[in-house]
Computed example of a mutant assay.
Amino acid sequence: MKAFPPPYTEHFSVIKTSQVLLLLAIISLITGCSRLLFYPYKTHVRTPEQLGLTYTDISLTTRDGIKIHGWFLPAQGRLKASIYFLHGNAENVSTHIMSVAWLPEQGYQVFMIDYRGFGLSEGEPGLPDIFMDIETGFDWLSARSQNKPVFLLGQSLGASLGIFFAGTRPAVKNQLDGVISDSSFTRYKDIVRHAASTTWLTWPLQYPASWLMAYPYDPIDVIDRIAPTPLLIVHGTADTIIPFEHGQRLYDRAGEPKQLLKTAEGHIQAFMRPEQRLNVLEFLNRIVAKSH
């Protein structure tokens, strides 16, 4: 399996920006503005070409007229399936690409988008509008799946959004052959409470803040609706941003068939390790084999 350089770290690391963002979520309770839940970065810091990957820039327009940008990475050799990737919070596709750069050589074409306000995408991020971005990208990839299986792969916030997206749209679920959730949280109020508890400044706010976080988009409330589509939940026991218990609770609530990949890594770090990539490939390849 091809080796890639380590994740980009010159700007804020994903973990550090996640910590900042989670604290900003507490401030959003005062303003009532969901945009403060998101921490976008406009500049691209690398391209797939710099990683030796073939790619195409894709521009799509959402139902509300926002242009969003994405990268399409074609499969190398025979196409096995399509992967729709929803990245985590902070920065943009250029800093999250390492999570999926290894998939094309395994026969999987990948489409990854930047939500509105991230990278080259127009607009400002916010709930529930961001689901229109996810829908637009999913429809584009589905039309180009060549009758091969389609998988949704989300990380961190992207995993939480992806679970809600798949769990609340029967037509989408019916088109999916599998869902992979890496480091998702259970509820917005749970993750805000955890973030507030990590510093002395916000510790007294953890319960008042969580009580006021009333977004109706919590993945744990809908994850059981993904069944009978196969579900793989990936979560690291060393995750200090979204503790492992979130992944365990999501797994317990989900319907069959489901699988929990418990790793020793930190937040969205599992795919940096070859052995964890192989575990994910086993999940993907098993479903692809059954589709023939």
Score class of each variant (00 low, 15 high):
E105R: 08
H69P: 00
A90N: 02
G77S: 04
Q109N: 14
S145Q: 09
R144W: 03
S142M: 04
G70E: 07
R63M: 04
A101I: 06
E91F: 09
S99Q: 15
K67M: 13
F138V: 04
I83T: 09
L51K: 12
T61E: 11
S59M: 02
Q76C: 02
E49H: 15
S145P: 11
S145D: 00
K80Y: 00
L141Q: 02
D57G: 08
G137V: 10
Y108H: 08
V45M: 06
W102N: 12
N92C: 07
A90Y: 01
A90D: 01
E49V: 14
T54V: 08
Q50A: 13
A143P: 10
I130C: 15
T47Y: 10
R144Y: 08
G88Y: 01
L73F: 06
S142F: 11
T95Q: 04
S142C: 11
G137E: 04
L73C: 01
T136V: 10
M98Q: 13
F138M: 06
A143E: 08
I58T: 02
W140S: 11
G70I: 10
V110Q: 03
Y115G: 03
D57C: 12
A81G: 11
A81T: 06
N92E: 03
V93Y: 14
L53R: 12
S121V: 12
P104A: 06
L73D: 04
T95H: 01
L60F: 10
G107T: 01
E49K: 15
N89A: 10
I134Y: 02
S145W: 01
A101L: 02
Q109F: 08
D139E: 04
S99F: 05
T56N: 08
I58H: 00
A90V: 04
S59V: 06
I68T: 10
S142N: 09
G65D: 11
